[in-house]
Design a protein around this nucleic acid. Structure first.
Length: 361
DNA sequence: AACTTGCCCAACCGCTACTAA
DNA sequence: ATTAGTAGCGGTTGGGCAAGT
């Protein structure tokens, strides 16, 4: 090796800046299917022109299904103030006490709101004093924190904070949204995938977007390439219940999909070259984002309902994500989504020609 | 309406901690 | 014990947007 530490990625080769819906879709899809054993290798395996760090950040701060977004409640703000008194700028530790909030988000809120609020409340006060006096609702903040601790099995004693990150992938399952990874279960993986194949579509309630038999003729040839795979992938797109086995599934530079109907001999391999065609990505980005229509119904009701299932939660999250991405579920998008499903599933360079042909009509 | 200013927040950067060989 | 690779953390930046002039 050369001197010093190798850069995490070649900045000339990776895309930077805001994430496009297409990239989000690709990342979500990949992680949902294979997890994120290795962030560094993930972009390559997923066919993303991003630094692994960037992928990780995007996932943790934005795309994770259990990430809570929107304004912070007074309770949460008070909790942050309180926790900051004890922990200082240990944003990840603070975040671990606030379900669904990310360290980055908390850091931002602190820097933009809470710090000023605190400053405005009395410069002469000691930290401790200000903490006491500033928390008119400290009891509620405490209860929020303690509730979070209970939910997450995090010790209430902040000084004993273990440094674990309940918000990260290792403990998403505690939120009831993302179960802990179940590695080394190839049999289950296969069963899970088998269940998601088009043959079993009846068991799914959010697959209609891609079950379209009314796709335009000019798209059919394109879709034929591997539409069962695409549909399978998009069907399970936002369901985080599927186990995965990254270790056994992935080699650098390629994605070995679990067995499926398309490939009864197994070892279905999709090679996603890192050097993706920039034009392709431009085209991809110009496409309308992915959406699932059934999820439009009754999200809020589900939240309050007694039978709020994982599936419901997945759908809620999907709807939320759609909103976040500025997606609007419309019928005609099914066509584009077909295309997108393919792009998410296969090698961009493989798809570049047929996709281009399709788009040019 | 046009321009400026300030705020917000997603994303990036660089460092440290951890782990495996 | 050392080294290299990776994940995670905290600080910082910059683009977009809203409010103000």
């Amino acid at each position: 090796m050369g001197k010093g530490r190798a850069p995490c990625c070649d900045k000339n080769q990776v895309k930077r800046g805001p994430w496009s819906p297409a990239e989000d879709s690709r990342l979500i899809s990949f992680i949902q299917k294979y997890g994120h054993e290795n962030w560094r290798a993930l972009p390559k395996q997923a066919g993303l022109l991003r630094c692994g760090k960037s992928c990780r950040l995007r996932w943790i701060n934005y795309l994770r299904p259990d990430v809570k977004r929107g304004h912070f409640t007074k309770e949460e703000e008070d909790a942050i103030l309180q926790l900051h008194q004890s922990l200082g700028n240990k944003w990840s530790k603070i975040a671990s006490h606030l379900p669904g909030r990310t360290d980055n988000e908390i850091k931002n809120v602190w820097n933009t709101h809470l710090k000023k609020r605190l400053a405005g409340r009395g410069l002469g006060q000691s930290k401790h004093e200000s903490s006491i006096s500033s928390s008119s609702s400290s009891s509620s903040a405490s209860s929020l924190v303690s509730r979070a601790c209970i939910e997450r099995n995090v010790p209430m004693d902040l000084e004993l904070s273990t440094g674990q990150r309940p918000l990260d992938e290792k403990s998403c399952g505690q939120e009831g949204v993302v179960p802990p990874p179940q590695p080394n279960e190839p049999q289950e993986v296969q069963e899970e995938v088998a269940e998601r194949l088009p043959d079993n579509k009846d068991s799914k309630d959010h697959s209609s977007t891609f079950s379209g038999s009314n796709e335009p003729a000019h798209l059919k040839d394109c879709v034929r390439v591997d539409s069962p795979i695409a549909e399978e992938q998009m069907d399970s797109f936002f369901s985080f219940s599927s186990p995965y086995d990254v270790r056994s599934a992935l080699e650098p530079g390629e994605v070995n999909k679990p067995d499926n109907n398309n490939n009864e001999s197994g070892n279905f391999t999709i090679d996603i070259p890192f050097e993706c065609d920039v034009e392709f990505w431009n085209m991809l980005d110009s496409l309308e984002p992915f959406s699932v229509h059934e999820a439009d119904v009754g999200q809020d009701d589900r939240r309050t309902g007694e039978g709020f299932s994982r599936e419901d939660e997945d759908l809620s999250w999907l709807r939320y994500l759609e909103n976040e991405l500025g997606l609007e579920a419309t019928k005609e998008r099914g066509v584009q989504e077909k295309s997108r499903a393919i792009s998410v599933t296969t090698s961009p360079s493989d798809m570049a020609v047929p996709m281009k042909a399709c788009c040019q009509g």
